[in-house]
Design a protein around this nucleic acid. Structure first.
Lengths: 136, 136
DNA sequence: AGTGTTATTGACGTTTACGTAAAAGCAATG
DNA sequence: CATTGCTTTTACGTAAACGTCAATAACACT
């Protein structure tokens, strides 16, 4: 049917260890089926892993990522919880926009230093080859 | 002369504990002077703390933040290390741009769910007040 | 002099996110 | 059929980033 993956398939593809995948299972982030004793990962597990790793890059804890998954799963459910859901989303959003701002600031700063670096390296280079403009 | 701060001044301002500030000192992120035994934080320390907290929000470890500070301090120094510096900066930049992409993806997803939420909440609301359009 | 506030240095505790080693089970393969 | 390779569970270890006492010291009042 739909393609499945072994534990090392996914580990390799995403550059993590099998230990990590088992850990994520303990934490409820993925729920692979079993072939006897061996884990079999579905497409859904693969997607979840991808999302989890993105979440990690964004600084979320595994617990928070699980929460997000739960919220995500809940997204088609009863209205009574939707309000609470909405509030949580708003908090996430604010946090992420702060983070985006942080990233922009950092990138600008890095770009600045990078150009400074290039300039200095260029200067050092041009002073090695005796060129007429400045060597005079 | 220039304004100084006590440990709790900065802790309060940045919403961290004094323990955190002492820890950051252990890790070499700030180097407050002393009035006898008491710490006195300079404007420079304050800036460093601010940068450190931003770094944390971006997912850097304290060790990495210290590295960045060292690189930053080195920025006006000898060319022989500039090349190495430049390489490190480039790695950071790539990492940050990946992160920025992650943030964008996440924000879009959140915005999508938020509007879905609002829509459902609105629907629920309008079905409470018997309005002619749909109650018919 | 006594009381309260804020500071100091240890030093052990805690949480998170895995690492790592041990012991054991299938499965193909030379 | 023994070895090699991948898997499993169990369980202790660890690095980072602080938390949380504890004991002590310096001031500010009142």
């Amino acid at each position: 049917m739909s393609k499945t993956y072994t534990i090392s398939d996914l580990a390799q593809e995403f550059g993590v260890t099998t230990r990590t995948l088992r850990h994520y299972e303990d934490q409820g982030l993925v729920t692979p089926a079993r072939d006897g004793i061996n884990r079999i990962y579905s497409h859904r597990d693969r997607v979840r892993l991808k999302l989890a790793l993105r979440g990690k890059r964004l600084g979320f804890s595994l617990g928070e990522i699980r929460e997000l998954f739960e919220l995500h799963d809940l997204a088609g459910s009863e209205q009574r919880q939707l309000e609470e859901f909405s509030v949580k989303l708003e908090r996430r959003r604010a946090q992420l926009e702060q983070q985006r701002e942080d990233v922009e600031v950092m990138l600008n700063e890095i770009r600045f230093f990078a150009t400074q670096c290039q300039r200095r390296l260029a200067e050092a280079e041009s002073s090695k080859t005796p060129n007429p403009e400045r060597a005079a």
